[in-house]
Nucleic acid binder design. Structure first.
Lengths: 223, 223
DNA sequence: ACATATTGATAGTATTACTATTATATTTGC
DNA sequence: GCAAATATAATAGTAATACTATCAATATGT
């Protein structure tokens, strides 16, 4: 089956870039290699100069696409959550049973991620590692309130809102639907971080994912 | 009642500092004002130069206490979790009923924090804000595995392990005690972050704390 | 009073995070 | 096919950061 994404383009908030990187070879190269380089050396050590060397291009050319590395990271994470939202809609549409719908949504945000070949310049498996290791840094800045107003985190909130709605379908009486949904999405990332680095305080081991833990949690809380 | 902490000194991993800041006036001044300055301008904008100006001391003098701002932040967060552990032991000792014990432990890690006047140079209310906004940054670095080996996160893990043990007492059959404990501790910080910045995806509002949400969660999962 | 430790002041370095300018390709429009 | 527009590359430069090193001033302990 041909994946719909081959034809659809993921749209990202225009304020996140100076020039749309999806519209040129260099732009797509920046996206592809910024994912690889960030995964390799981490967000703190990542610089536009090093990225320029990696793609045999110039620092100044990269600045024509992105104002700074923070916005590039927000761009990449927005891309990830957009991709996640697209898959969530796909997987939950036409499912009549709300519990089944919730199970599918939870599975999606908690399972291990593999590359989606429909997007040749984005490796989702590696991008997922960046989300696990760096995503909270996009939020935890002194500019978060302004950036939130500018809509930088809309896609992320939309993914969580979709889960909130499903939770409400499953149990309209439950008073903490929002907190439960945001806990699952953020918590799953955190459990994956722990399984990689602080193994003694998580039950997940190397190849596990967080699906069982959160499915069990949601069912016991809501049913 | 005189708080025990007035007499007890919180011990921090020696690898986190060059010279123990609790042993001099300047050291305690660095601790006190680094908390104030980080809260004010955020960890990214925080520099030893600015801190030096704030305490009318010199950048180079601060470097004699801490190698860099990352280690200072790890020091402050270790201090916080030590203080939390001390209070947790205090609050859970001699409670026979495991469920009551768990409730008290959850309350402690999820409630809003007020200043503890037993520690004149540390303002715990402000330090808690720093934990909410910056704690994950101490973990999410490329050095996390080495620093974990050096014991930088021992106190944090110890707090979580105490909760794991209580969860096991409440329900020895539950298979995800570790993930549940780490979810509660990290998740509570995250919910507090959301209530301050991304209010639409949490049920907590301004003066709420995460206690009700997590107490309800733990009971439904374990009982 | 004198040795020792602590702090302060200054200077210096490499790197980062940009901005500006100019030159050189490449594309496109007619 | 050629001029005009656009994109990219190369270079230089600036202010700030994250330190290190040195030396002077001051306080403390015996």
């Amino acid at each position: 089956m041909q994946n719909l994404l081959s034809n659809l383009k993921i749209t990202i908030n225009e304020k996140l870039y100076v020039k749309d990187p999806e519209t040129s070879e260099l732009g797509r190269n920046i996206l592809k290699n910024s994912i690889l380089l960030m995964d390799e050396i981490g967000f703190e050590a990542f610089t536009f100069k090093k990225l320029g060397e990696k793609i045999q291009s110039n620092e100044s050319s990269i600045y024509r696409y992105f104002e700074n590395k923070h916005k590039l990271l927000v761009y990449l994470t927005s891309w990830y959550w957009s991709w996640m939202e697209y898959r969530m809609v796909f997987v939950t549409t036409n499912i009549a049973n709300p519990v089944e719908k919730l199970e599918k949504a939870i599975k999606l945000v908690t399972e291990n991620v593999a590359d989606d070949h429909a997007t040749p310049h984005i490796n989702e498996e590696i991008l997922n590692r960046i989300i696990v290791e760096e995503f909270t840094k996009t939020l935890m800045t002194k500019e978060v309130d302004n950036e939130n107003k500018e809509g930088f985190f809309l896609v992320y909130k939309r993914v969580i809102n979709r889960i909130i709605e499903i939770i409400k379908e499953v149990n309209p009486e439950y008073p903490f639907a929002k907190s439960l949904a945001s806990s699952i999405v953020e918590g799953a990332l955190h459990q994956h971080f722990l399984k990689n680095h602080l193994k003694t305080i998580t039950n997940l081991s190397e190849k596990d994912c967080a699906t069982d833990f959160y499915t069990d949690m949601a069912k016991k809380i809501l049913l």
